[in-house]
Design a protein around this nucleic acid. Structure first.
Lengths: 141, 141
DNA sequence: TATTAATCCTATCAATTTAGTAGGGTTTGC
DNA sequence: GCAAACCCTACTAAATTGATAGGATTAATA
């Protein structure tokens, strides 16, 4: 299951991208527009800023803005920051690898084999989808 | 993350399939062979039996056996029984659909759009993978 | 028919994760 | 200087996970 954190984070990024401007967008505005609890959203945007995806401006007329063009913000990056590993088991994770304590031999493990396939197909979707793709509205296609 | 329940369930099914026989396999044997807590595994196999994937024989010399040929047991079925919805959000689930309480319009939702793609690519892997595929050992390819 | 070995079933539980909330501190524009 | 924004830490209730406990039921066999 996708966490609310990730879901809200994606919606917020889309919201910012859809403004189409470089001016900072305020948390309150996003929270209102996307029905997200403001305090929770604050912590999510902070995570995205610390990961280098968002920039922020403090004080009056402050807010968050994208550090790169939406077309250069790939879902692989966003998902790893918000949701963590893309793989469903650590033993097939590219960025967060960990050995299973039960499995004596990974290459003989049927779960390993299956989850590599799932990882690769999911990865292909994320690699080929940018924030720009997310932010295009249906009626603009 | 894949739950231990699903992981253990897949390993157990693979174990049974690899015996290549129709004779019931005992829980204790599987638990020992795959390093799975026996009591936990019991409850998992029970789930798989109630879902019609496994059959069981009670009493002495009892155990669990596959109800179908491994080539006919698809990962779509197994994963739905053990892990639940394949989709990462209920609003794109084919078998467990639910509307989001926040989203006013699903078709305008960027998360929805992305998660449909993930669902479809994952689904394709599961549809094209049977228990037979899982149970083939590397050196037998 | 008694014993044993297996599945079946319900209940409980500790640890972890999730989805927030609370309460300020800090910075900036006007 | 003050209001409006981000920044940061700590806490918490509810749900889920990964088991464990304890026995009820069933079937083979000696």
């Amino acid at each position: 299951m996708l966490s609310k954190k990730t879901k809200y984070g994606l919606k917020a990024l889309t919201f910012i991208a859809r403004t189409g401007s470089d001016l900072p967008v305020q948390v309150g505005e996003i929270a209102k527009g996307e029905n997200i609890p403001q305090k929770f959203l604050e912590s999510i945007l902070l995570t995205l800023r610390k990961a280098g995806i968002l920039g922020s401006k403090k004080g009056k007329h402050g807010g968050y803005y994208l550090r790169k063009d939406p077309s250069e913000i790939l879902m692989t990056e966003v998902m790893r920051v918000l949701e963590g590993p893309i793989a469903m088991v650590p033993c097939v994770s590219l960025n967060f690898y960990e050995k299973c304590d039960d499995c004596p031999d990974e290459h003989a493990c049927s779960v390993n084999k299956l989850m590599i396939q799932v990882r690769d197909s999911t990865l292909e979707v994320f690699r080929n989808t940018s924030l720009k793709d997310l932010s295009v509205r249906e009626n603009e296609k």
